[in-house]
């Protein structure tokens, strides 16, 4: 191995270590000094799950089979999606001291946020799998889950880069994300089926990346079928392009973060 390649390998390994440590810090800090600890990351989706299940099986029955699992399989990716965007907007402004420290590769902070929320997602999966085992079993197509996860991961990177750098100079960004996510939640088939949406509104779902992803999650976890490839491939392509664009915009403004955060 040439010296240059060795340097590059070390750099990649260090990047992995750095994100690893920063994610560990996030996880530790969020739940330290609380009795239930990391279990809190499970409790809020579970509470929402309980409410949605009660409302849409008892009060407004939607007639969706295995409704609790159905909702949970949509709720988990949604939680990752919205959590990463909300916290991603603050990835830089909440890390003032890291940003002002020489030698810290700031570009890893937005990635860290996405990975942290991926970790919460991953921690919730056992609950989902237990539910699947109890009610219908885990289909073989669940092996495709990492592919869907990868697409969602890539798709989140670009927006998080953009939001994080925008928030530094314009603090409205974070609030805006919170406001926008509310209608998007209802426009995403988390607690209902995309197939029950009237045709004239179908374009909203075809254009909604969260809807495409959640449908794919349900395909591989509940319906035991391979997800539709084309929309996922398109999402992945858009995700990669967005990530490159976002990273570039981020790098262009990164030099003024320290100054703006003063």
């Amino acid at each position: 191995m040439s010296a240059l390649a060795a340097v590059r390998t070390r750099r990649v390994r260090h990047a992995v270590d750095l994100v690893h440590e920063l994610v560990l810090r996030d996880l530790r800090l969020r739940y330290r000094r609380s009795v239930l600890g990391i279990a809190w990351s499970q409790l809020s989706p579970l509470a929402l799950l309980a409410v949605l299940t009660f409302v849409f099986t008892k009060i407004l029955p939607l007639q969706i089979p295995r409704y609790a699992l159905f909702v949970y399989a949509g709720l988990l990716p949604w939680t990752w999606f919205s959590g990463a965007l909300t916290d991603g907007a603050n990835a830089i402004v909440w890390s003032r001291d890291l940003v002002r420290r020489p030698g810290v590769p700031v570009a890893f902070l937005p990635v860290t946020t996405v990975v942290t929320h991926l970790a919460y997602f991953a921690l919730s999966l056992p609950v989902l799998f237990v539910g699947l085992t109890v009610d219908g079993g885990i289909p073989a197509t669940a092996l495709l889950l990492p592919c869907v996860v990868a697409v969602q991961f890539v798709l989140l990177l670009g927006p998080v880069y953009l939001l994080a750098s925008l928030q530094v100079s314009l603090r409205d960004t974070g609030h805006l994300v919170g406001v926008v996510l509310v209608p998007v939640f209802y426009a995403t088939p988390v607690f209902y089926q995309a197939s029950s949406v009237p045709d004239r509104y179908r374009w909203v779902y075809d254009a909604n990346p969260a809807a495409i992803l959640i449908t794919a999650y349900r395909d591989v976890l509940l319906e035991a079928r391979a997800p539709e490839l084309l929309p996922l491939a398109v999402l992945a392509a858009i995700g990669i392009a967005l990530a490159m664009f976002g990273r570039r915009m981020f790098e262009r403004s990164a030099h003024r973060f320290a100054e703006e955060l003063g």
Partner: peptide
């Protein structure tokens, strides 16, 4: 860099955690 104490040194992290995090942030494995 040896600058003022910063966010790496979050009050709830233990000294050991801070040492590892600080070292990795400073470029070590």
């Amino acid at each position: 860099a040896l600058l003022e104490i910063g966010a790496v040194f979050h009050p709830d992290l233990t000294g050991r955690e801070v040492a590892v995090l600080g070292g990795v942030v400073a470029g070590m494995m």
